[in-house]
Simulated assay, not measured.
Amino acid sequence: MSNKVIKGLPLGMVFGLGMLLSVQSCREQPKEKSSETAEKNSIQDDGFISLFDGKTLNNWEGDTTYWRVENTILVGEITPETLLKSNTFLIWKGGEPKDFEFKTEFRISENGNSGINYRSELLDTIPFALRGYQADIDGKNNYTGQNYEERKRTTLAYRGEKAAITSQKDPDIPGSLRANVDKNAWQSRTVLESLGNSDSLRTQIKEGDWNECHLIIKGNRLQHFINGILMSDIIDNDTINRKFSGFLGLQAHRGPPMKVEYRNIRLKEL
Rank of each mutant, 00 (worst) to 15 (best):
E70M: 10
N71K: 14
I73T: 15
L74I: 07
G76D: 05
G76P: 13
E77A: 09
E77F: 04
I78F: 09
T79K: 15
T79F: 02
P80W: 00
E81W: 01
T82G: 09
T82M: 00
L84H: 05
N87T: 10
N87I: 09
T88M: 06
T88P: 04
F89K: 01
L90S: 07
I91E: 03
G94V: 01
G95N: 05
E96A: 10
E96R: 12
P97Q: 08
F100Q: 04
E101T: 05
F102L: 15
K103M: 12
K103Y: 03
T104Q: 09
E105A: 03
R107S: 12
S109K: 07
S109H: 08
S109T: 14
E110G: 11
E110V: 14
N111H: 07
N111E: 14
N111V: 01
N111L: 11
N111T: 13
G112C: 04
G112L: 06
S114V: 11
G115M: 05
G115Y: 00
S120T: 08
E121N: 14
L122A: 13
L123M: 14
D124P: 07
I126Y: 08
I126L: 15
F128Y: 14
A129I: 06
R131D: 13
R131Y: 02
R131V: 13
Y133N: 01
A135M: 07
D136E: 15
I137R: 00
I137P: 02
G139V: 06
K140I: 11
K140M: 09
K140S: 13
N142W: 01
N142I: 00
Y143P: 00
T144F: 03
T144D: 08
G145S: 11
N147E: 08
N147I: 15
N147A: 14
N147T: 15
Y148T: 04
Y148G: 03
E149A: 09
E150I: 08
E150S: 08
E150L: 06
E150C: 11
R151N: 15
T154R: 13
T154M: 13
T155I: 14
T155A: 04
T155E: 07
R159V: 15
R159I: 09
G160M: 04
G160F: 07
E161P: 01
K162W: 00
A163G: 06
A163N: 03
T166C: 05
T166M: 10
S167L: 03
S167H: 12
